[in-house]
């Protein structure tokens, strides 16, 4: 009998220990996933600071970095929604161009001028919803649909301006492109572009983590058939995420237009989709969907901006910048594979 008592006591102790170890391991895994690439961002920044003889961490340079990352951050936020469902949106660069063109054209009408901003955003949303409808209702693969719209919408952007560059030096709300929000006069101001990008990240976080829709997005990416059986309207979720991606591409177009006072349907936003996808993957969002966070995407977008800025600062030639950035993309996907191995899929 005493023997029985001893073994009965030992068993829960052992399983308790096992559970404690398992929790610890899971916590470590969650911290690694949450912190993600942040150490890489810091190391890169410090490295560039040292290599450039202290020219990286200056108020002016940081301002440039965040301003350069702003549009990509906004696109990548939309891309995060899409990739979380296991999809992809290759058309954001083209949608950005079309939205900027539409915005600039509206801005030149004297009476409608102030409406150019919502017009640009709306243009983006419409293209995005079209993507989503094709994917959700006709069940076409996202890669194919958005590859098609990458080309088609680019054509539409060129059509809008009759294949010319549209200028408007007196475009309303130009401050969002080049102005800054002064927090402490003379000491601290934040570019409006960056304020918008941070707001987008914040709202995205709220939607993904604090709403029913957010959980449904993760569910569709994690297991689409199970989501359907659980009564989730998968088609609505898909139209929503592609709509958001398009809408944010439209916002990106507006930001770009306000910054340049001009738009060109051919050149604007060329291959922006690649930077957006890279930012999302660098940020730890799984390419197969279901896993990831918007904060990771922010860090990913910053890494890309820091890389571009730092490589210029230390005088790396344009050609090598391409090579290095490409290697970073491959490295990021390698990380994605490694992360998946550690996930709970059994």
């Amino acid at each position: 009998m005493p023997e029985n008592g001893a073994s009965a006591k030992a068993a829960p102790a052992a399983s308790g220990l096992a559970a404690a170890q398992e929790t610890k391991r899971q916590r470590t895994r969650m911290i690694i996933r949450a912190v993600g690439m942040l150490p890489v961002l810091l190391l890169l920044s410090i490295g560039f600071h040292v290599l450039s003889d202290g020219r990286f961490f200056t108020g002016q340079n940081i301002g440039i970095v965040v301003q350069q990352s702003a549009v990509n951050t906004v696109l990548a936020a939309g891309m995060t929604f899409v990739i979380l469902t296991g999809g992809i949106d290759l058309s954001v660069g083209s949608i950005l161009a079309a939205a900027a063109m539409a915005g600039l054209i509206i801005s030149k009408f004297p009476d409608l001028g102030a409406l150019w901003l919502p017009a640009a955003v709306l243009t983006g949303a419409v293209f995005g919803i079209l993507n989503g409808a094709l994917i959700a209702l006709l069940r076409l693969p996202p890669f194919i649909v958005t590859l098609g719209s990458l080309t088609a919408v680019r054509g539409a952007a060129r059509l809008l301006g009759a294949d010319t560059t549209v200028f408007n030096p007196s475009i309303p709300y130009a401050f969002i492109g080049n102005g800054a929000l002064t927090l402490i006069p003379g000491v601290l101001s934040i570019p409006w572009l960056w304020v918008i990008a941070l707001l987008v990240i914040l709202v995205s976080w709220l939607v993904l983590k604090r709403t029913v829709l957010g959980v449904h997005i993760y569910a569709v990416g994690g297991n689409e058939s199970a989501a359907r059986l659980a009564g989730i309207k998968v088609w609505a979720v898909l139209i929503f995420v592609y709509g958001v991606s398009g809408l944010l591409a439209g916002l990106g177009g507006a930001m770009q237009a306000a910054r340049l006072y001009a738009a060109n349907g051919l050149q604007l936003g060329q291959s922006y989709e690649l930077d957006a996808i890279t930012a999302v993957i660098l940020g730890g969002t799984s390419f197969v969907g279901g896993i990831g966070s918007i904060w990771g995407t922010l860090v990913g977008a910053l890494i890309i901006a820091v890389l571009s800025n730092g490589l210029i600062l230390i005088g790396v030639s344009d050609v090598w910048q391409y090579v290095i950035k490409g290697l970073v993309i491959i490295g990021a996907v390698a990380l994605d594979r490694y992360r998946l191995q550690g996930s709970a899929r059994t």
Binding site: T211, L213, V215, G222, N223, S225, A227, I232, G290, A344
Partner: peptide, 30 residues
Amino acid sequence: KALGLFLDMSCLDNINLAVLGRDAKFGGIL
């Protein structure tokens, strides 16, 4: 595994998935 659970999601989310909408505040906040 194929049609029921979301293996990467927490037990919490898996359990609540079907009633999230019913429980939500302001028409969609968890």
